[in-house]
Structure formats: C-alpha cells, structure tokens
Amino acid sequence: NALIKQAGLLKKIIDAIKDLIDEATLDCDNDGIYLQAMDSSHVSLVTFYLKKNLFEKYSCNRNLSLGINMTSIAKILKCGMSDDTLLLETNNPIDILSFKFESRRGHKLSQFQLRLMNLEMERLSIPDTEYSCIIEMMCSEFSKVCHDLATIGDSMTITCTKKNVTFDTTGDLGTGIVSLKQGVVGSENDENVYAASIKIVKPVSLSFSLRYLIYFTKASSLSNKVILHMGEEVPLMVEYKIFNTYEEEAGYLRYFLAPKVNE
C-alpha cells in the first residue's frame, strides 16, 4: 500500500523514463520502491528510488517485484489529475497493481487496474564510484544547453575544470560552445543564481550522445538542480533528486550513460 499526495509526481517520474525503457520491475520493500532498467541498446541505465517518506502512507510487509510495462503505467497515470491523491495497492496473488485516484475535494474517485507482467530481470550492481568531477547546475540550464547544442551536433563534449564547465559540439553547420563559471554568479530577486557548482578532484573531458542527454532532461520538472558525475573510464551519472510535498529529500532518479569514443 502506498499513498502519494500528488499523483502528478509519480506521473512526472514515469514520463521521464518511459521513452527510454519498455519494461521494468518495481522492487518494493519496507523502505521504498526501487527500479532499475537498461535501454535496449545497453548505452544507458536508469534507476530510481522512491523512499518511504515520499508517500503519505507506505507499507510493504514482504519484498515484491512488480513487472511493469512503462507505456501501460504511463497511460493509467494520465487518467488522474496531478493534484489527486493516489493509492497504489497490490492484491494476492500479485498479478495486478491497482491505482485509486481521489480528487483534492474528494468529489471524484477513479480506479484503474494494471495487469502485471512476469519479467525475468537481471539485477545489476552499481558500484560506488569516486568521480573526478561533480557538477551541480540548474535543470533548466542543462536542458537548454543540451537542446541548443543538439541543433548543431549529435554529441556534446563536457569539459570540467576547477574554474568552469564547458559544453561544446561540432556539426555540419558549424560549432557551438557554452561555458558556465564555477560558483554563485549573482542574485536575482534576492535568490542566488548559480552558474555551476563544481567539486573537482581532477579535470575531465568526455563526449556524450545528445540524443540520450535530451531524454534525461525530461526529468527536469522533478527538481531545480541536476547533478552530473563524471570520471575517466566510467559512465556519466546524471542525477535528479526527488522531494516530497514537505520539501524533504525522498529519493532520486539517476541516469547512467557511457561516454562516446572520440574518433
């Protein structure tokens, strides 16, 4: 049983991954819900973790693996309103996941059932990695950079030094380069405006497919900030933290992407 205060939050999470993966299992235990899945070309991996405190009520008295078709769950979530409360429940035997939406004023109740799938998914182990550079920036900024550079080239090189992070691309029409300085660069309406916050052990320069990076920016509505973790010989980790309605950290959505080989 999991009761979420705003159904729209779960919809945003599923919408941010449904175009990348077809099927996945939701692994539920008493602490929360975990998903891990790889895109069919094995170039990227998606994981999310929805901690217990994301939900108003949460109980799971035994470990469950729920096989989900992503397009189907997205269709059901689309039937609710974003500020509806949503109760997720499984039956016994576990072959369906039920969705009960209730409008904020309580005047409308709707219920949908999703047929679960028998999926044999391999559980991969994601190693604890010491990244050379960790870059935190506004989601909207990262999304704009990716979309702008994708109009010029297919891949983007991210170069991180102590002073700045640079995004650049080359295509048939020419080149593009965007550079963000380290640190808070000013204030706007009494709010700090960040270029990029950079934690660095060693400078890194790696290239990535813009097509995938643009997929990842679909998670931009989950959080203000995105965190890019980079290191030589390791996949890029693009992380969006997930917050509950009390603005407490309540999980994450992480994308991993293999760097491209520079030819």
């Binding site: 790889m38 094995h42 991969l124 182990s125 010989e233 390791v234 991993f256 293999a258 491209k260 080989v261």
Partner: peptide, 14 residues
C-alpha cells in the same frame, strides 16, 4: 556510434 563501455557488461561485473 561507439561507446567507451557496454553498460550491461560494466554493471554486471560491478
């Protein structure tokens, strides 16, 4: 496109 890692292989070996 050529990539530095096959992620399935990468995460399988941990």
């Amino acid at each position: 496109d050529k990539y530095q890692n096959d992620l399935l292989e990468y995460f399988r070996t941990g």
